[in-house]
């Protein structure tokens, strides 16, 4: 760990010999700023930071906001990859700022940070998530059952639980949906995240609303608009096989009919 850091400190050409083993390097962050109260246009702004490359992009954003420019606006809540608030486009790829280490994204070049695409930018890195959550709500992401409620918990075998384990990991950060080229062009498409969360209940043995959810996703803006470009699987910070989940919903729709 220490060796590459030392090398980078040397490359940065630390002026005084005393700083030779400092872990800090100079990194340029190129952030796409947008403030509708000042200008209709978004523009790129560079910030130079002395920062440890083992820190995360979110730490750099904090440093900029707290020490350089307090007007920089972004979302973050837990800052540890669980809340899904800080999905953003870093070096052209959707990632969570709180899970991306600076050393992993080539800090020798300027690191670009911009808002996720396909959703309306409100300010700087903050987008309007409402279309995203509306699609999420439309697939009814809650347990639907009939009959009397059992007095105990609803039992399920380990295999049945395993069936939809992958899609339970979604944190609704919108990294997948905002990396989908179909969603970029047509916000009417449900998007990968909504389908993943429908998948989580469609393949749950305890749930009885699968048929309704499949019917919703069978619509013209449902799963059939997926072009299997795999952007969503690549973007998912939780490593969910999103495209596979979408394909499984397609297969369920076809085998249900024939």
């Amino acid at each position: 760990m220490a060796t590459p850091t030392l090398e980078k400190a040397d490359e940065a050409g630390a002026p005084e010999p005393g700083f030779a083993d400092s872990p800090y390097i100079t990194v340029t962050f190129r952030i796409r700023r947008f403030n509708p109260e000042v200008s209709e246009e978004a523009s790129w702004q560079d910030f130079q930071l002395e920062i440890d490359p083992k820190e995360r992009v979110l730490d750099a954003l904090h440093k900029i906001k707290w020490e350089l420019d307090g007007s920089l606006t972004f979302r973050r809540s837990c800052a540890h990859g669980i809340c899904g608030s800080d999905a953003m486009r870093i070096n052209g790829r959707n990632r969570l700022a709180c899970k991306t280490l600076i050393k992993d994204i080539n800090p020798e070049k300027p690191i670009t940070v911009e808002a996720i695409k396909g959703l309306t930018v409100m300010k700087d890195l903050v987008v309007d998530m409402e279309p995203f959550f509306q699609a999420y709500r439309d697939v009814m992401p809650f347990l639907i059952t009939t009959g009397n409620e059992p007095t105990r918990e609803r039992r399920q075998s380990a295999e049945d639980r395993e069936r939809f384990d992958d899609t339970t990991k979604c944190i609704l950060c919108a990294a997948c949906t905002s990396s989908c080229p179909v969603f970029w062009n047509d916000g009417q498409y449900f998007g990968p995240a909504a389908i993943v969360n429908a998948h989580r209940f469609i393949f749950d043995s305890r749930d009885e609303g699968g048929e309704q959810r499949l019917e919703i996703l069978n619509d013209k803006d449902g799963v059939w608009r997926c072009r299997t470009t795999f952007n969503c699987s690549e973007a998912c910070p939780r490593g969910i096989e999103v495209t596979k989940a979408i394909q499984e919903v397609k297969r369920a729709l076809i085998t249900r009919r024939f």
């Binding site: 309007d128 409402e130 449900f190 069978n218 619509d219 449902g222 059939w224």
Partner: peptide
């Protein structure tokens, strides 16, 4: 106040309702 920025093509109330049956699935198959 600043002007409200509308999403390019917002999901509407009609989205996900006006179903065309199985046409999209049949086209895909």
């Amino acid at each position: 106040p600043a002007p409200v920025i509308e999403a390019p093509r917002k999901r509407t109330k009609k989205t996900g309702r006006a179903s065309r049956g199985n046409f999209e699935m049949q086209a895909w198959l």
